[in-house]
């Protein structure tokens, strides 16, 4: 079976899937979609794939899926033999899904601010920026107390999950929306950790972190 990703390079939601598939070492084809300036995601052909007119769309054999969070869960359940990325435990599943929802809130705020400033979208800049700051404050606090108790990731397991992948891209791209992360030092440290996950790849706008201190 072949996996096909309908993809736009500058989309953080598409990148979530490229990132997980790289970490899981999955092979896939890319169908580039001219999201900007072509607005191809509103074309008839694309709307037949996803009536919501949104990227990303992933096809796996006969299956056509949309929504990055849903697809992350699908890929992890289907292809992650370790079971770590989207754990089975009901409580952890709920926790991860909670963060997938936060990721959508980040898309609605930080990503919207980026679209407003970079891609001429008619969003309310001040409102989206303020919304992103509100979310970042909470995540920073969560991660700061996590560090104090030995938790490095958004969800409670001792390893990263799709929760981290879902929230990462638009946190990292927030400055393009005029949202500084200077006030969120724990959030900044977490972005270093995500960038050091084996198999990590970049997208345009996100630079790699250098290597961690080698264990003595």
């Amino acid at each position: 079976m072949t996996i096909t990703l309908h993809d736009f390079e500058l989309s953080g939601n598409c990148y979530k899937l490229r990132l997980l598939m790289s970490i899981l070492q999955l092979r896939y084809d890319i169908v580039p979609v001219d999201f900007f300036p072509g607005r191809e995601h509103k074309s008839d052909a694309f709307l037949r794939l996803n009536p919501f007119g949104q990227l990303p769309v992933l096809q796996d054999g006969d299956l056509t899926l949309s929504d990055s969070g849903a697809i992350l869960a699908y890929l992890a359940r289907r292809y992650d033999a370790s079971g770590q990325w989207f754990p089975d435990d009901p409580a952890v599943t709920a926790e991860v899904l909670r963060w997938h929802a936060v990721a959508d809130d980040i898309t609605a705020t930080a990503s919207a601010a980026r679209l407003a400033l970079g891609f001429d979208y008619p969003f309310d800049l001040e409102k989206t920026q303020a919304g992103a700051h509100r979310i970042f404050r909470i995540i920073d606090e969560h991660l700061w107390f996590g560090e104090k108790s030995g938790r490095d990731w958004l969800a409670s397991p001792a390893h990263p999950t799709t929760a981290d992948i879902a929230c990462f891209p638009y946190v990292m791209l927030s400055e393009e929306g005029g949202i500084s992360r200077q006030d969120y030092p724990a959030l900044r440290r977490w972005t270093d950790r995500v960038r050091r996950i084996p198999g990590f790849i970049v997208m345009s706008g996100i630079f790699p972190a250098g290597p961690a201190l080698p264990a003595a």
């Binding site: 736009f8 580039p32 997208m203 630079f207």
Partner: peptide
Amino acid sequence: STITDLRRFQQTIFGQDKPILEN
């Protein structure tokens, strides 16, 4: 290459310059 391919290539490049310029 298609126009979409060529656009993607150039946007990839420019998307990498953007955070540098904005910093």
